[in-house]
Design a protein around this nucleic acid. Sequence first.
DNA 1: GAAAAATAGTTTATTCGCAAATAATTTGAA
DNA 2: TTCAAATTATTTGCGAATAAACTATTTTTC
Lengths: 164, 164
Amino acid sequence: MTVAPALTGEPAVAGKDAVSLGALERSAGLVMRIAQLTVFDHFFAVFGQSEIKISEFTVLYAIAENPGIRQGVLADVLKIKWPNMTKLVRALEEHGHIERHIPPNDRRSVHLRVTQKGRKQIAASEEKMYRSDRLALAMLDDEEHDQLLRLTRKIAGWPSVQEA
Amino acid sequence: MTVAPALTGEPAVAGKDAVSLGALERSAGLVMRIAQLTVFDHFFAVFGQSEIKISEFTVLYAIAENPGIRQGVLADVLKIKWPNMTKLVRALEEHGHIERHIPPNDRRSVHLRVTQKGRKQIAASEEKMYRSDRLALAMLDDEEHDQLLRLTRKIAGWPSVQEA
DNA sequence: GAAAAATAGTTTATTCGCAAATAATTTGAA
DNA sequence: TTCAAATTATTTGCGAATAAACTATTTTTC
């Protein structure tokens, strides 16, 4: 029930006794946040100084999977705030990865599509995404990985794989 | 294998067909992030306009559990960046919740202790923390909650409860 | 024992995320 | 019809988070 200061590699603080968080160590919400930050450290390490950010890649990929999707819908699913999605979409458009279409029947909305260049970008970055995941969760075996996916889907309010 | 746009309560975008994220739906790292954001929505809802922020409470509680701890050690364990920890510690000190001690044998470091007032603040807020966790993870049964805790501890690099 | 390297923490400047306000359009109600 | 409310997206302003540079002190190396 104690936490070693060193989380990866060499100790962040050498020679320090273990730190205990007491009852907080049983707050799955808190531990989950720390685990998530740890995971994303790996993601950033893999993507590094890539030409496309993880958030941009995720949105780009999602648009490819859902041609013509509205950006607000995507924002809600990915838990991205609408103003941030506006910026992401603008960046993707400026890089020529997507196109914005305004349908005549509802000119408030913006429908998104991936361009040929966007498809190439996905092909070029896709493997990084899977590698990030494997690297970040290398301490889990296959069964644990599946468990984690099942639990996190449930928390996020996504249907379980069976019922989908 | 599809994601309903509505995650909680009423649909964020009514009348929209389900969104699929394709292969990304099997990236536990990505799903974990979305789940974590969902969890913290509940945390913020419970803490709301409390006099103390969740981050401040967590740090305060951790100091109480580890009297005299250095703030850098705490920052590394909680995955808080050092400059942010500086601000958190300053805020806690200004509110009279903690004291900073500079030991004569190493005057670079700052050792932290909770004051009597800090202890009262913990007593006053502690229950909110547990309530947040219960509320945010209400969709999990006890076994699933334990599983989640075990998996996230492993990802965060914390020893399992057994081996501690 | 002096210079160089490492450690602990803070400051600064910038980026990022968010809430609130705004704009444009569509829907709904009187 | 006409006007109020809702929807969709963007802009703006501000506060939080980050990286990089900096200060102070201690440890190591030669």
